[in-house]
């Protein structure tokens, strides 16, 4: 009986091997997810910039709060963290309010605020990475980017969004700590094949429920030399609260040679 089976078993094994070999071969042609994510992380880290930005916050019932700001950024030497100075231009009652944000990928960011009503600069300590970025539906982590090494990636499929072929990549946190720091149990990103810019994202909260969707439009090449791209219109909707944020950049200019000393507390009080 046994002897009779042996040859046929060999055939089955051979067949199985050949079947297994196919996906193995295909995987070789598959994109290197880690390198995609690395590029994705750095592609929009411009060396420095100035821009006018409009923040539109929209609540569940459609009421809006519109804030116009003038922003200046400078990338720090580690090529990860930015320094951001943001001056509020409107609405009138907050005109002259300035925030200075020094990002720290490894720890809480430093935030200083100048309130003209108080005529004082105060330091604001808050920000978990999962907290709201300046009161928007974006979190600090969304703005700074997610450390590539802390996530596991899976290519779900490839899809074309607005004529752009994209990878659809699922990211899940490697550790519970990453999950609770970012507040996400899963992210799915649509990443353009050509420049590795994210055009769309979906987020799931720590309880595994859908939390937000984001879209990134009007993506422009802002620095040819460094190969930096920037989305000029960003929108995030919190599907749980029905709250939405739209950020629109205008007059976005890079390489402004902004000096580091600009990003100091004493500079905040100047108009």
């Amino acid at each position: 009986m046994n002897r009779k089976f042996t040859p046929s078993l060999n055939i089955i094994l051979a067949l199985a091997m050949s079947l297994l070999a196919q996906p193995l071969l295909a995987q070789e042609a598959e994109p290197d997810l880690l390198s995609i994510m690395e590029t994705n992380f750095s592609v929009s880290k411009v060396i420095g910039s100035t821009s006018d930005a409009t923040f539109t916050l929209i609540n569940r019932t459609g009421q809006e709060r519109v804030r116009k700001v003038f922003g200046t950024t400078k990338l720090e030497d580690n090529e990860i963290d930015n320094m951001r100075m943001t001056r509020f231009l409107s609405p009138p009652d907050v005109k002259g309010t300035v925030s200075l944000l020094i990002e720290h990928a490894d720890r809480d960011d430093d935030i200083w605020l100048y309130l003209p009503g108080l005529k004082k600069v105060r330091r604001l300590v808050s920000s978990n990475k999962k907290d709201s970025f300046l009161g928007t539906d974006f979190s600090y982590a969304d703005v700074i980017g997610y450390k590539v090494g802390e996530w596991n990636y899976k290519l779900l499929k490839e899809e074309t969004i607005d004529t752009q072929p994209c990878y659809v990549i699922e990211a899940t946190p490697k550790t519970e700590a990453v999950k609770s720091n970012t507040g996400y149990s899963k992210r799915i990103s649509w990443i353009r094949k050509d420049n590795k810019m994210t055009v769309k994202s979906e987020f799931w909260d720590e309880n595994g429920q859908m939390l937000k969707t984001s879209t990134f439009n009007d993506i422009q090449l802002v620095d040819k030399k460094r190969g930096n791209w920037q989305a000029m219109r960003l929108e995030t909707s919190n599907v749980q609260t029905g709250h939405r944020t739209i950020i629109r950049f205008e007059n976005f200019k890079v390489n402004q040679q902004v000096e580091s000393k600009y990003f100091t507390v004493s500079n905040m009080e100047r108009d």
Binding site: I111, L113, G117, L118, L124, D131, S132, L134, T136
Partner: peptide
């Protein structure tokens, strides 16, 4: 003005909906 700036300040450290049960938008 200062009250507005406080509210802005709080909104920078909280979530967009933190005050939704106290004031309308």
């Amino acid at each position: 003005e200062l009250i507005s700036q406080y509210l802005l300040l709080y909104s920078m450290s909280g979530d967009p909906g933190d005050f939704d049960s106290y004031v309308d938008y």
